[in-house]
Design a protein around this nucleic acid. Sequence first.
DNA 1: GTGAAAGCGCTAACAC
DNA 2: GTGTTAGCGCTTTCAC
Lengths: 365, 365
Amino acid sequence: MAGKSRRKRGGSGGHRLEDVARLAGVSPITVSRTLNKPEAVSELTRAAVRKAVERVGYVPNRLAGGLASNKSKSIGVVLPSITNPAFAERVQGMTDVLLPAGYNLLLGLSGNSTEAELQHVMAFLGQRIAALALTGTQHAERTRRLIAQAGIPVVEIPVISGRLIDMAVGYSNEAASYAMVKHLARFGYRRVAFLSANVASNQLLQERLKGYRQAVADLGLDSDPALIAEATFSPASSASAFVELLARRPDLEAVFCTSDLQAIGCALEAKRRGIRVPEDIGIAGYDDVELAQEFVPTLSSVRFDRYEMGRTASRLLLARIQGEMPEQTVIDVGFEIMARSSTKRPAHRGRTGKRVRPTAGSCRG
Amino acid sequence: MAGKSRRKRGGSGGHRLEDVARLAGVSPITVSRTLNKPEAVSELTRAAVRKAVERVGYVPNRLAGGLASNKSKSIGVVLPSITNPAFAERVQGMTDVLLPAGYNLLLGLSGNSTEAELQHVMAFLGQRIAALALTGTQHAERTRRLIAQAGIPVVEIPVISGRLIDMAVGYSNEAASYAMVKHLARFGYRRVAFLSANVASNQLLQERLKGYRQAVADLGLDSDPALIAEATFSPASSASAFVELLARRPDLEAVFCTSDLQAIGCALEAKRRGIRVPEDIGIAGYDDVELAQEFVPTLSSVRFDRYEMGRTASRLLLARIQGEMPEQTVIDVGFEIMARSSTKRPAHRGRTGKRVRPTAGSCRG
DNA sequence: GTGAAAGCGCTAACAC
DNA sequence: GTGTTAGCGCTTTCAC
């Protein structure tokens, strides 16, 4: 006791490195090393320190550690929203890799606003995050500048083209969309609607719309702009968008929705109206959520491994944090067109289960 | 230049308070005050400082600030998983309140393991989180001890009974479950199955099972233990559990699922087997996801406002962080039985839309 | 309203 | 392998 008179120790009540050190009969730095670089400490000392740590229930102050070392054990993640299962699984994949490595997740929800993203990135940088995971490649210039200045590893998900900041894990949304339209065309659907959430604010949807348009052009499908509609992610909203599409184009043959929930909304509306799927109208979704293959009829969808994407992205970040330089920093995880009943128009026979290999990233076949 | 020789300033490149201060022609502490307590600084100085901050793009180091003040602007949140939309909406509600107040979210996914929860809480405490939000009241003793020692505000969600640590926002899961079974009984279903995820590891499900059992006993329904089954959250898994229930009890009349996705899994399986819902079998869900009211048939479910729960919990935490003592620290948000087609057995007529008022927290009517 | 000094708890650097 | 010293960038305390 009678240490140098300190400023009042806040209510956080924790013990300090020094307390543990005294108890273990070593210097503070030895305790620090035991915790951070155990291999640099003799086995004997290590045991003594560990015992002391246990004894007082020492929880290191990461704020102090971070300040001293100018880096923290936190990783920032910015997502548009988390209610969308597509993003939720990515987060799960990330924590599953980062937690065992001792890293925490700082979560920022941006709602597709680059301004909100900037706010989050600033806050994260203020906490000296060790790395950053962003969604898409659409960022405020200031965000890019701040990140560059910070010099931390960054991974963008789930895109692999565009103006990449650093690393990326994803696939070509455009190619996936193209492939699905091609799949529909193969089954004879030629008046195919594109139903998505608000495209203007969402880069991924822009890519998908581009793929849709390209396929429509390439395959000579109906290119009427009235076939393009927007709805929120709720099934109810997409149901009414579907109704409007039908009103605009009573000869509508298929709807390609950029989310499964929207596709299900359309399918349910079709059922309520006695429209048969896939006979009268083909319906395709996106994301391949679990419900897609259980639904009646089973729902064709675009599949990509969101969970694995989170894991891969995290591994990339961890490698870079540890100073390694992964040979591949832009990883294409590919996608898969899951051809199921909802787009299987009778009297048409198409190939199914087309898998786009990771390195391809575009539609083949 | 020629400042006192410092340890190398890490690559994080940022400017310091001192840089801004020099530029603005004031002392560092004045800059600090301008940023944290603007009202304590003259308008003129404030303007000068703000300009300097803008000019160099100053991002305060929260690590340093946190160390000095022994508190951070981060709030820890522990959830079992985030793939479940029920939790995702809570998180959205929390950030919507916390972000404008300048707080970040540290996310920890525990998978219903109290041990994992402990790990997260330790890591969070190491970062001197300002407050903590936990799921349920089942915690390791050590977790409780650490939290008590830290003396930070805690809110538990979505439960309001049991061994509460501090504050709570939620409703009685038991009463909600009881109410749904009662609703089923009112429509003449007497052989009601209870289908949930693994109960042993999940406190909420335990409460719901208790409510089910109590209702079965009180209302004289069939209490055969074979009517209780488990499945994962996937619709496929619950579909097979449903099949097994039918095998065990071919005279099964209704299934009460503790999640909507499971209920939908059952309903889809019923459709595949030509079993009519609600005529042959009644199906009830839990959570009232958007799809529930769009599904065909519309799905009866237990509703509670998850988003608002997140907001309320966050407001409680913020108040306590600011030293206020909210008069109510255990908030019952109530629940609602959404009576829809999937449980409306013809020739039976029950009351619908029963709303349990927040302060009631139990089943009335 | 503003500033000077001290120190939050830890780790980097260098000595032994 | 272990210890000593000097800060990390901020906020507290107390003076003016």
